[in-house]
Design a protein around this nucleic acid. Structure first.
Length: 270
DNA sequence: ATGGTAGGTATCCTA
């Protein structure tokens, strides 16, 4: 079974119909995981996704902020939502895919502007959520678990995940404390960074460019904030990974672009 | 060093 899975921070799903049509036509994922849908669950535009062929839909929405959803051509079940840090924010949707795969669609807080937990509660929240996630994934470290952890993690971990390592060391998304916390989460279950497994770390690679730029492509001050990770039991089936950079230049874009992997799974026996 | 844009909501929050 070949599966193509895309993660995209849509920054308001209701404004992205034409973007979503192009994603369906040009990337054509079997499973599409969205973050920042910015809509309450009961107002989610199901008919739009039905028309695109995504007949299986799980939505964990919230009015105005955050919100995650999973749209799929193949059946999904066992939806679980998680409330990290007691904030009751819609930032995590877990579900099961055929083949016993656990999918975790995540939206980690951006963390505000000031990288100081004393001055900035949003930065504290970001670090706290990363700690809670690390502890939660470490609790059951059974290495047979087939886990797909993806989403907008709002951290660019490597030097070549940002346009200037030196200039971003004190900028939220690339500070050493965030990078350490992200690494600890990754190590909690030995997750493999699928995108960097395919596209070597010595190449600059971004998935986000600010809206506050005259010409995003010319200045190219991007960051790789969106990630797809595989547990060790799933990593051997990774075939390809892409970041659709050109989507940043499509009509009415999000500030994030889709990131995609292909998995070549063995014939199911369960 | 500063401000720049976008989205949702309701006059200001977040990214």
């Amino acid at each position: 079974m070949r599966l193509r899975i895309t993660s995209w921070n849509a920054n308001s799903v209701r404004l992205r119909q034409s973007m979503l049509e192009r994603i369906r036509n040009e990337i054509d994922p079997d499973i599409l995981c969205l973050q920042e849908i910015k809509v309450a669950s009961e107002l989610f535009p199901h008919e739009m996704f039905e028309a695109l062929g995504y007949t299986h839909r799980l939505v964990h929405g919230q009015k105005a902020y955050h919100g995650v959803a999973v749209l799929s051509r193949i059946p999904l079940d066992g939806m679980v939502t998680h409330d990290w840090c007691g904030k009751e924010e819609a930032r995590h949707l877990e579900c099961r895919l055929p083949g016993g795969i656990e999918l975790h669609n995540l939206y980690v807080p951006a963390g505000g502007d000031v990288p100081d937990i004393e001055q900035n509660p949003k930065f504290r929240h970001k670090l706290d959520m990363l700690d809670e996630l690390r502890d939660w994934f470490a609790r059951n470290s059974d290495d047979r678990r087939r886990i797909l952890l993806l989403g907008d993690l709002n951290i660019a971990p490597h030097e070549n995940d940002v346009w200037s390592h030196r200039q971003l060391l004190k900028v939220v998304s690339h500070t050493p404390v965030e990078v350490e916390k992200l690494a600890a989460l990754q190590e909690s279950h030995g997750f493999v960074d699928a995108i960097r497994k395919i596209i070597p770390t010595d190449r600059k690679l971004y998935s986000w460019w600010s809206y506050r730029s005259r010409d995003w492509s010319a200045s190219d001050r991007g960051r790789r904030l969106d990630h797809i990770w595989l547990s060790p039991a799933l990593a051997p089936y990774l075939r390809d990974a892409t970041i659709t950079r050109e989507a940043r230049g499509w009509d009415q874009p999000s500030d994030h672009v889709p990131v995609t992997i292909d998995l070549d799974l063995p014939q199911q026996d369960d």
